[in-house]
C-alpha cells in the first residue's frame, strides 16, 4: 500500500535523526545514556506529548489550535481552585480541569463548524480569552495549597511517573482509535478532501467538532498534570506550549494541509524535541544557543524527512 510505504520511509527518516542526536549526546555527555535520564526525558515530554496527540486530531482535519497553552493555564487554575485539601474528593478537581479544557475545545469547534470562522482566528481568539479567564479566576495570582492526593498525580506508580502513564495511555488510545474506528477514518477523509468526504456522506461538521472537543479535553488533562507537577495553578503557565506541540506533530510528518499523519509520527516528534531540550541542558549549553540549535534541528528534521519521502 502506498501510504504504508510513505509512513515507513517517514518513520525511518525521523528515527535516523533521533538516533544521530541520541548518539551525539551519548558521546558528548556521560549522563545522557542512563535509565534515570530516560525516565527524566519521559517525564518532561509527557505534557507536550499529551498536547501533541490532541492537536494531531485537529491538524488532521486541516484545522489548527493555537489556544493550547492558554487553555492549559486555564484548566490548571480551574483544577487547583477545587483542589484545596479537605474540600472535595480528588476526582472533582480532575473533572473540573478536564471539563474546562473540553469546553474550550467545543467552543472552538462550534465556531469553526457553525460559525464558519477560520480555525486560525477562532483559536487565536480562544488563546487570549482563556488566558484572560485564567487571570480573572485566579485574581492574577498562582493558586496554591493543593491537596497531596492531587499533587500525587505527578508521582510514580510502579516506578513509572504517572504523567508518563497518562501520555502513554492517551497515545495508545489515539493510535488505536485513528486506525480502527470509523470516526478515525472520517477524520482523515475530512482533512484530505472536505468536499469529497461530504459527498461520500461523512458528517463533516460533527467530525470536526469531535476533533476540537477531544483536543480540548486532552489540553485539560495536560493542565491538570502540569498543575500537579508544579503544585500550583499558574495563570501565566503554558506560554507558547502550542508551538512546541504543533512543531512536534509537524516533525512527525502530519501535514498542515490535513489528511496525512500518524500518532506514531507525533510520538517521534515529541521525543525528538524532548531529547534536544534535555541534551542541551546536560551539555550545559547556554539558553541563547539552545534556542538557535533547537530551531535548526526542527527545520532540519522536517527538511530531511520530506526529502526522503519524495525520493
Amino acid at each position: 500500500m502506498h501510504t504504508l510505504d510513505r509512513n515507513l520511509l517517514h518513520r525511518f527518516g525521523l528515527l535516523l535523526v533521533i538516533f544521530i542526536v541520541g548518539l551525539a549526546l551519548s558521546l558528548l555527555t556521560d549522563t545522557f545514556l542512563s535509565v534515570a535520564n530516560f525516565t527524566n526525558v519521559a517525564r518532561q515530554i509527557s505534557i507536550n506529548g499529551i498536547l501533541a496527540v490532541g492537536v494531531t486530531f485537529v491538524l488532521l482535519t486541516a484545522g489548527v489550535d493555537l489556544s493550547l497553552g492558554s487553555v492549559v493555564a486555564l484548566s490548571g487554575v480551574a483544577c487547583a481552585t477545587f483542589a484545596h485539601p479537605g474540600e472535595h474528593s480528588v476526582f472533582v478537581p480532575i473533572a473540573v480541569g478536564l471539563f474546562t479544557g473540553a469546553a474550550c475545545g467545543l467552543v472552538n469547534g462550534v465556531l469553526v463548524t457553525r460559525g464558519g470562522v477560520a480555525p486560525f482566528i477562532v483559536t487565536l481568539g480562544m488563546m487570549t480569552i482563556a488566558r484572560g479567564l485564567a487571570l480573572i479566576f485566579s485574581g492574577g495570582r498562582p493558586v496554591a495549597n493543593m491537596s497531596n492526593e492531587l499533587t500525587a498525580l505527578a508521582g510514580d506508580l510502579f516506578g513509572i511517573p504517572i504523567p508518563v502513564l497518562c501520555f502513554a495511555g492517551v497515545a495508545a488510545a489515539a493510535w488505536f482509535f485513528l486506525r480502527n474506528f470509523r470516526l478515525g477514518r472520517h477524520i482523515y477523509a475530512v482533512g484530505g478532501n472536505e468536499n469529497a468526504a461530504r459527498a461520500a456522506g461523512v458528517p463533516v461538521e460533527k467530525v470536526k467538532l469531535f476533533a476540537y472537543g477531544l483536543c480540548g479535553l486532552l489540553t485539560g488533562l495536560a493542565g491538570v498534570v502540569l498543575a500537579a507537577r508544579i503544585t500550583t495553578g499558574q495563570p501565566n503557565a503554558g506560554q507558547a506550549y502550542e508551538l512546541d506541540a504543533i512543531a512536534a506533530v509537524v516533525i512527525g510528518g502530519t501535514s498542515l494541509a490535513g489528511g496525512v499523519g500518524t500518532i506514531t509520527g507525533t510520538l517521534l516528534g515529541v521525543l525528538l524535541i524532548g531529547v534536544i531540550n534535555n541534551g542541551l541542558d546536560l551539555m550545559g549549553v547556554s539558553s541563547y544557543y539552545q534556542a538557535v540549535i533547537k530551531g535548526v534541528i526542527i527545520v532540519g528534521a522536517v527538511w530531511l524527512d520530506r526529502r526522503q519521502a519524495r525520493s
Binding site: 542512563s34 535520564n37 527524566n40 518532561q44 507537577r229 499558574q234 531540550n277 541542558d281 546536560l282 539558553s287
Partner: peptide, 20 residues
C-alpha cells in the same frame, strides 16, 4: 542557566542538572 523566573522551567532544568 536561566529558567525565566518560571517554576515549571526551573523544575525541568533542575531535573536535567541532577542527571548531569
Amino acid at each position: 542557566q536561566t529558567a525565566s523566573w518560571d517554576r515549571a522551567k526551573a523544575m525541568a532544568l533542575t531535573e536535567n542538572w541532577i542527571q548531569a
